[in-house]
């Protein structure tokens, strides 16, 4: 039987720290993907993600039940990424192989074009200013709602909506200028 998050958390705080493994299992994909898309240096993603979970563990007693746990965890991950980005500007290592080539029955050329396109989009995403990038990452990649994003980022919904609008336009403008150059 699956225990609800809150039960796991309470038992962790009371000393059954092995149960934290279950929490890691549930949220690792979310946390990992936020970090993956916020940190340029992919070699560091794994270490940072582990560090974030340790931070989550240490702050468990301060978990506020009004949040969904995913929102609260995403908030810790986001803040950690901001800290890291502030501390050192990671040298831009190009995104290696956004792999998983499970493209149906496309010809090799089509596959190549699609792969190219995905890489361009992810590259441009990486070049967006952090506060715009995080919105695209949270909403489009990880499927958070506007309300959740407003909790993660501690900003009112109106600001989040506005910023998302601008983020999408920025991304589109960069990509359509490339399209004119014949890349897309």
């Amino acid at each position: 039987m699956e225990l609800p998050d809150i039960v796991l958390i309470e038992r962790c705080i009371k000393g059954e720290s092995h149960l934290f493994a279950e929490i890691v299992e549930r949220y690792k994909k979310l946390i990992y993907n936020i970090i993956y898309n916020m940190i340029n240096n992919k070699d560091e993603v794994n270490d940072i993600a582990q560090e974030v979970f340790i931070r989550i563990y240490k702050s468990l007693s301060r978990y506020n039940k009004e949040y969904k746990f995913s929102t609260w965890a995403a908030k810790i991950a986001t803040n950690y990424c901001y800290d890291m980005l502030r501390k050192k500007k990671f040298e831009c290592i190009p995104i290696e192989e956004v792999s998983n080539v499970q493209m149906d029955n496309d010809s090799p050329e089509d596959q190549y074009i699609k792969k190219e396109r995905r890489e361009r989009i992810n590259d441009e995403l990486m070049n967006l200013p952090e506060k715009y990038r995080i919105l695209i990452v949270l909403f489009h990649k990880n499927g958070l709602s506007y309300e959740e994003m407003s909790q993660v980022l501690d900003e009112p919904m109106s600001i989040i909506k506005n910023r998302m609008y601008r983020a999408r336009l920025m991304l589109k403008d960069k990509l359509s200028s490339e399209r004119k150059e014949g890349i897309l």
Binding site: N46, I121, L125, K172
Partner: peptide
């Protein structure tokens, strides 16, 4: 069309954390 492409590509594969991820976190803890 550009927006549709963007949304489609962004939705594509989420990265899977390494298999040993939990074990490593728990070891550190």
């Amino acid at each position: 069309d550009t927006f549709e492409n963007i949304c489609y590509e962004l939705k594509e594969p989420l990265i899977d954390p390494p298999l040993a991820f939990e074990t490593e976190v728990m070891k550190k803890l």
